[in-house]
């Protein structure tokens, strides 16, 4: 098994022994994970395994109990959500977390809330990935289809010009065709140099697209390796790929 240790020397994203809990419930137990610049890493696991909690600790929505979190060489564990966004992290939340009653345009513009001068060009650039949204600027987010809502959530996150995109189950609730489309866009973004940490229950696609993957169970990482390696693993096949 080839570990990706030498690639992670850049400390682009390096998490060590991260723990988190909700009251007495331990949701994460000493999770360590690495992601080097420009790569796509997948985190797969069953319902309630702690995937969303992990992403929430990374973006700062949830306070970790302990552990270190290096992003671009700095330990950002004490940073606020806004500071992490400024630093280049963008979190696309599970369930999308759109501003449902605001229009598409306002949703996208609020994505650039911390940008000094949210330019028209930034928006145009984002629309290159999501041409369908450009035609619905005045529609409320709630009126969009599920697929378009997911696109909008990603578009909003891109407006902050992120270096690292945290994606929480982007394929949830979408038809297979739309899932393919979403993955295609994620792949495009990676091609443009955006690093991606993808949380998915749709393990087969996630493993197919990612450079490296981790399996989380009950708040602990139980397995890691390249996508191909995990896709061939008997336990993974049985538990997550349904083969």
């Amino acid at each position: 098994m080839k570990k990706n240790t030498d690639e992670t020397l850049d400390h682009f994203l390096k998490i060590d022994n991260l723990s988190a809990s909700y009251g007495k419930i331990k949701a994460l137990h000493k999770v360590s994970l690495n992601l080097s610049r420009g790569k796509m890493v997948a985190l797969i696991g069953a319902n309630g395994a702690g995937k969303s909690t992990f992403l929430r600790c990374l973006s700062g929505l949830k306070k970790a109990d302990g552990g270190t979190l290096y992003f671009q060489g700095k330990n950002i564990i004490g940073y606020s959500v806004a500071e992490r966004v400024k630093g280049g992290m963008a979190h696309v939340l599970e369930g999308r977390a759109l501003f449902s009653n605001l229009c598409v345009k306002d949703n996208i513009q609020l994505g650039a809330y911390l940008q000094k001068k949210p330019g028209k060009e930034d928006m145009q650039k984002v629309f290159q990935h999501f041409p369908a949204l450009a035609e619905k600027l005045d529609a409320s987010a709630a009126s969009l289809s599920g697929g378009q809502q997911q696109m909008l959530a990603i578009a909003r996150a891109l407006m902050s010009q992120p270096l690292l995109l945290l994606l929480d189950e982007p394929s949830m609730g979408l038809s297979p065709i739309l899932v393919k489309e979403v993955f295609q866009i994620i792949h495009e973004l990676k091609g443009q140099g955006v690093s991606i940490l993808l949380v998915e229950q749709n393990a087969s696609l996630a493993l197919q697209y990612c450079d490296y993957a981790y399996v989380i169970e009950n708040g602990s990482i139980v397995l890691e390796g390249s996508g191909e390696f995990l896709a061939e693993n008997e336990a993974v096949k049985k538990a997550y790929l349904g083969i």
Binding site: V81, L93, L102, D106, L110, A112, Y113
Partner: peptide, 23 residues
């Protein structure tokens, strides 16, 4: 105004507002 829209956004979805950097 940006701040006004941010207020509406925060009342619509607190998590969504935080992840775009709204306090």
């Amino acid at each position: 105004m940006k701040e006004g829209k941010a207020m509406l956004g925060a009342s619509e979805n607190a998590d969504g507002a935080q992840v775009v950097g709204i306090s």
